[in-house]
Amino acid sequence: MTDWDLKKLRILRALDECGTVTAAAARLSMTPSAVSQQLSLLSRQLGAPMLEPYGRRVRLTSAARLVLRHADRVFGQLEQAEAELAGYLHGEAGEVRIGAFATAITGLVVPAVARLRVSAPRLAVRLVEAEAAEAFELLACGEVDLSVSLSVRGSAAEDPRLVQLPLLDDPLDVALPLGHPLATEADPRLAQLADAPWIFGSSGPWREITLGACADAGFVPGRAHTAADWAAILAMVGAGLGVALVPRLLSRAGEADGVVVRALPADLPSRRVVAAVRAGTEQAPPLRRVLAEIVKSK
């Protein structure tokens, strides 16, 4: 029976994910020559070539991809074993690294971490701000243990290495300049802003969310100004330059100067916030504890 070398399999997987020997070596803190040498040894051990020339670079062979299909399942089982072992050895201790978008950090994660510092002081939580697809990428490559992101296409839902967990539907409110006709209306409707100048980004999930919410209300918003930073968006609204949709997680922090934030109960626009973990780690006690506290912040 073949003596499988997990270290060499991890190097092979890193090359597959990174695309080049140089990039894989950088991720693994190895030299490119050491990566090539280990993969040559793996080829000899398995009796099949793992790499083939591709221009000035190399790429994985069909045999290497066959090996990786099985190796991914093995690594998933090993991660599950490590997670269960952590439950026995550490209990409420350990470290959880979280990648989350900005408003989730302020509205969900930070309150959870504050409570954990009191109830589980030996459980360390490290935060990395990362938007949507980036958070899933950090999770997939092992840079974080938990991602809190928006539900977007082409992310965890399509990656068999990740498990996605719904957190909440975050309502969308509308930010209006002080004195706007809808600022004091009893039941404002999104369609009443069809001709208003709108403020949102030129790309990314929030652009799609804004366009989708307005489409559901029957119009295409006319973008008068482009911004992605919430402080900049609210400053523009406060200056009377336009209107914008804002997540309830953001408006919890209070209204900015010159801005009135109104709910849209008749339209009920929202965005879906999800958590994701690597397959096999769902039952890790530190992860479960952190997730439970994040859910309490809803």
Rank of each mutant, 00 (worst) to 15 (best):
residue 186 A to R: 14
residue 247 P to K: 01
residue 51 L to K: 01
residue 243 V to R: 01
residue 252 R to G: 06
residue 240 G to V: 01
residue 17 E to S: 13
residue 230 W to F: 09
residue 294 I to R: 13
residue 207 R to V: 03
residue 294 I to L: 08
residue 297 S to R: 11
residue 13 R to A: 15
residue 257 D to T: 14
residue 191 A to F: 10
residue 167 L to A: 07
residue 54 Y to F: 13
residue 77 Q to G: 08
residue 167 L to D: 01
residue 106 T to S: 09
residue 192 Q to W: 14
residue 268 L to V: 08
residue 138 L to N: 07
residue 194 A to Q: 13
residue 165 L to Y: 07
residue 26 A to F: 05
residue 98 I to D: 12
residue 173 D to E: 08
residue 249 L to H: 08
residue 268 L to M: 10
residue 287 L to Y: 07
residue 262 R to A: 07
residue 113 V to A: 02
residue 136 F to I: 06
residue 178 L to Q: 10
residue 56 R to V: 13
residue 90 H to C: 09
residue 121 P to M: 08
residue 294 I to P: 07
residue 125 V to P: 01
residue 14 A to W: 06
residue 23 A to I: 05
residue 220 V to A: 11
residue 228 A to V: 04
residue 25 A to P: 02
residue 147 S to N: 08
residue 68 L to V: 11
residue 90 H to W: 15
residue 270 S to M: 00
residue 197 P to H: 14
residue 105 I to A: 05
residue 175 A to V: 08
residue 270 S to H: 14
residue 143 E to Q: 15
residue 94 G to F: 09
residue 35 V to Q: 02
residue 74 V to Y: 13
residue 285 P to Y: 04
residue 168 L to R: 15
residue 116 L to R: 06
residue 217 A to G: 07
residue 147 S to F: 01
residue 228 A to R: 00
residue 296 K to G: 10
residue 68 L to K: 05
residue 145 D to I: 00
residue 123 L to V: 01
residue 65 R to V: 05
residue 115 R to T: 09
residue 284 A to V: 04
residue 232 A to R: 12
residue 277 V to T: 11
residue 107 G to Q: 11
residue 7 K to P: 02
residue 111 P to F: 00
residue 154 G to C: 05
residue 113 V to N: 00
residue 69 R to H: 07
residue 146 L to G: 11
residue 227 A to I: 00
residue 79 E to C: 06
residue 34 A to G: 00
residue 46 L to W: 01
residue 53 P to I: 00
residue 1 M to L: 11
residue 255 E to F: 06
residue 252 R to T: 03
residue 42 L to T: 12
residue 119 S to G: 05
residue 86 A to S: 09
residue 256 A to L: 01
residue 252 R to I: 01
residue 127 L to G: 03
residue 100 A to W: 09
residue 120 A to Q: 10
residue 184 T to D: 10
residue 84 E to R: 13
residue 52 E to D: 08
residue 159 D to E: 12
residue 5 D to W: 04
residue 268 L to G: 10
residue 151 S to P: 10
residue 111 P to H: 03
residue 269 P to A: 12
residue 10 R to H: 14
residue 181 P to F: 12
residue 13 R to P: 01
residue 143 E to S: 15
residue 45 Q to R: 13
residue 207 R to P: 09
residue 50 M to E: 02
residue 149 S to L: 07
residue 157 A to K: 04
residue 260 V to H: 05
